[in-house]
Amino acid sequence: MFPLSSFHEFSTVANLAMAVALGFGFGFCLERAGFGSARKLTAVFYLYDMAVVKVMFSAIVTAMTGIYLLSAAGLLDVGELYLEPTNFAAQVIGGLVFGAGFIVGGYCPGTCVAAMATGRKDGLSFAFGMLAGVFAYAELTPGIDTWIKDTAQGAMTLPMITGIGAGWWTLAFIAFLAFAGWGMGRLETRFAGFRPRAA
């Protein structure tokens, strides 16, 4: 039954309309979480407000649980879900570079849209920087894409490489979230002094 796209051919218009509808929910949640504000986003790196990790972690665990339950009920074919090939070198280097852009720029590609929508001029500046970066990558260093493709290690998930089922991993992530939630509460109290007094 799911994913729908594997069992039903959607027209371009229908596809793009679904993109707008799902995007609405995406942007609404990001803004409600406070992710349209660079100071709220970067607060996580000064430990006085861990909302970024709380939101991301609970979103991942929620989707993970949903995917597991839908698949256990026979409603979702997990094999049809797109799995980006793993390439450890590219993902570590890319992650380090991306993290630098995140703490310096204050946003990531999705959150800068929520920032622009709520009037943040620095969000707009970040988006122009992103566009310039993507353009430069295509024009100046397209060879990196060839290297990534040639050195990729292929599709890899935790259940695949450990032999431990997705259900157990999902339970482990839920347990870890509960523990991390407690720990993050302690951090926020400890580093409350960094919190700006007025918004």
Binding site: N87, G95, P109, K121, F126, G129, M130
Partner: peptide, 23 residues
């Protein structure tokens, strides 16, 4: 504003190398 532009540029490069971003 200048730093945000540079950060966006750097983040874009990282996302291109890693084939994806936070989302």
């Amino acid at each position: 504003l200048a730093i945000a532009f540079i950060g966006g540029f750097v983040a874009a490069y990282g996302a291109k190398i890693a084939k994806g971003c936070t989302s």
